[in-house]
Design a protein around this nucleic acid. Sequence first.
DNA 1: CGTCCTATTGAAATTCTTCAACACTCGTGG
DNA 2: CCACGAGTGTTGAAGAATTTCAATAGGACG
Lengths: 232, 232
Amino acid sequence: MLCASCEARHKGICGVLNPDQLVALSKHTTKKTVSSDQELFSADVPTKSYSNILAGVVKLTKLMADGRQQIVGLQFAPDFLGRPFKQSPGVFAEAATEVRLCSFPTKILEDMISESPELEHRLHEQALKELDEAREWMLTLGRKTASEKTASFLYMIATHIIPDKGTDGNTIRFDIPIKRADMADFLGLTIETVSRQITKLRKAGIIELENNRTVYVSNMNLLAKASEVDRD
Amino acid sequence: MLCASCEARHKGICGVLNPDQLVALSKHTTKKTVSSDQELFSADVPTKSYSNILAGVVKLTKLMADGRQQIVGLQFAPDFLGRPFKQSPGVFAEAATEVRLCSFPTKILEDMISESPELEHRLHEQALKELDEAREWMLTLGRKTASEKTASFLYMIATHIIPDKGTDGNTIRFDIPIKRADMADFLGLTIETVSRQITKLRKAGIIELENNRTVYVSNMNLLAKASEVDRD
DNA sequence: CGTCCTATTGAAATTCTTCAACACTCGTGG
DNA sequence: CCACGAGTGTTGAAGAATTTCAATAGGACG
């Protein structure tokens, strides 16, 4: 049984399944590795399967007719990926890095939900968490300056990758999991503006870049401050 | 029994409760009327009660230390109001119009959820709906121009108030339920910009204003188009 | 070595905000 | 009945922030 050693087994939605359910589910799961920039599902196409993210980062995007794009969510292992109770997901999902998935037909999940209230509770909790994050990000998109947006993104990534180091004068080194173009689409900015703001944060001594992707933050307080207030 | 004639009885979360549960709930509910601009709950204050919105519009806002504000959600009757499974809601709730509420202690709901999976399912569905809306709005905040944002808001309100008239060349008359300052906070703009964009839509023949709050749209297609593409 | 992809930087153009003035409505009290 | 003030909304002009267009740099890979 592969499930026993799975990332999603405890922290993911499978954590609430009992051994029998796990066996039943595992009969229909397939694990796949998807390379960066591959599309996982499309906004208006009826969904046939849901997934657990085992590794990597998935971006959820909205697209306008003229090509403008907004990333509306980033999902990490061991998140559940999909929009339950709806034919089509309403957003595009794309691998932002190489991604490993455990997929299963939508019907399996929906059957299991009706048998297991705990499963629906777990999904409900994740939906509420995503809603909290979406609203937090609406504040960023609507009211923060380009500089604050960029700092907010770095702060969000840093605390997501290395939890419990958000406050205090902690030191952190981490990799930005996505490219500048994706950062721009996440922040509602252009690539050029993102680049300029990173340079600005660097020159202000708030971050150091080891290469374009690796960030070193000597004092997380400074980054936290930069993500809220823009005092040059 | 007051519940029998209640707005939330069928369309709201109470629609999934059986008569016994309804009786149990009704022992702890209190109905109140709250006037415009009153605060209903605060982001970081532990919540003692949840509510159903019986009438009116509630705005959910995020606040920054320096006073910048973003509306992250608008809720209408018969929506459930509150953040289940979390001490504090993380957003402020404020009456955007006069609001009528049916409130009950948080514990009552949490007890009922553990007895009734259907109740959690209903709340889960609402959370997913709010998440869909939040993401739709993230696209608007991040990628649309001021003019498109304003048109999007009007379109969203129009279709919310009068469903099933979104497309085709339909004619609609409706009231904007909130003031310009709230529109600005919803759209991530200033009051002045909102005002200018409304004037622009008016001069372009897309909307007509009967007073500052009442909008007449002769052709919803035009408004839909204006909310996506900005061809002067 | 050349090419593709990613990222940075500069200068001009555009959009939105800020600051300031003014208009309208409504209720209150002289 | 009218004047006054508060609250709400509109408009103009100057300023600031971000985008657009254009050029350049660096790394990875065949």
